[in-house]
Write a protein that binds this DNA or RNA. Structure first.
Lengths: 148, 148
DNA sequence: CTTGACCCTCCCATGATGGGAAGGTCCACA
DNA sequence: TGTGGACCTTCCCATCATGGGAGGGTCAAG
């Protein structure tokens, strides 16, 4: 199977298949005499695994680990679960950050008339150059939004 | 005020100040005889505006627009509100995507024993290569996670 | 034998950010 | 006056996953 067909049946673009090969996520594909990559059904399954993992937000590095566990029939499921849990924590952290941004903005937008007049609490907030006098406990990551 | 001082009082790194200048987000800073950038209190206020906007997740492109509105005393607040609302929608979309990923993974992890045994519903799901027979209505962006 | 659909590699761009090298400037202190 | 260290400058590189495109080879059907 050529790369185009492998791409179609796995949902991974040809560009990305080549990229995954180049970074060692998948092993170099077999080549035909004319130097075309040749994929087996097994390779395509691997690509599908990768595709699905990407859809769940795993990084290529995490997928490297997941793939090695997938191939290892004597893996302890503990390891898989650990990767998944860590990723969920990461997602939750980022969600909370973005949620804080969205909430702040929703509040500001709600307070903004949104008409022809120039007065705007959104701009007022953005130009609010003094930090609150008493910073709260040091935030783990970038503090997403100021409490209002 | 040199760039280091401007950086400290605005919270924007020197690297980023130079970058913002290079992409035209801020106008080129004045220079001293020795070619050092020189910042006024006004410039620093602008940097603080940028910093805060970045903290709310606005892109440099959006901030370009916000800054021009900020400087325009006859702006209609409608425009500011529109930018904010669009950004909130964008955030909400990304949050929903990530939430779907996290929920799926939480579910799978919950079903995974997480012990020494190799059986693992997480890997099983990832290698689940058949797409559901009846796809739902076409998702607006990348569909984040399959319904389980 | 031509045409069009493939495939190959290599380079570039994205967005916001940091690292670091090589070299110039400034100030305070000996 | 010299010097060391803290600053500043520009330029290049890396990140992460992804796509675009150029320039050129391969293949199969007509």
């Amino acid at each position: 199977m050529n790369i185009g067909q492998a791409s179609k049946s796995s949902g991974v673009s040809t560009k990305m298949i080549r990229y995954y090969e180049s970074v060692g996520l998948i092993s170099p594909a077999d080549r035909t005499d004319s130097n075309y990559r040749s994929f087996s059904e097994r390779d395509v399954n691997e690509l599908r695994f990768i595709k699905r993992s990407r859809n769940l937000g795993f990084s290529v590095e995490e997928i490297t680990h997941l793939l090695s566990l997938w191939r290892d029939r004597s893996r302890p499921s503990r390891e898989v679960k650990a990767i998944a849990k860590k990723h969920v924590e990461d997602l939750d952290g980022r969600i909370a950050e973005m949620q804080a941004m969205a909430d702040t903005l929703r509040h500001l937008a709600h307070c903004c008339a949104g008409d022809d007049r120039p007065d705007c609490p959104i701009l007022a907030d953005l130009s609010h150059n003094a930090e609150p006098a008493e910073p709260r406990a040091k935030p783990t990551r970038r503090a997403a939004a100021r409490a209002w």
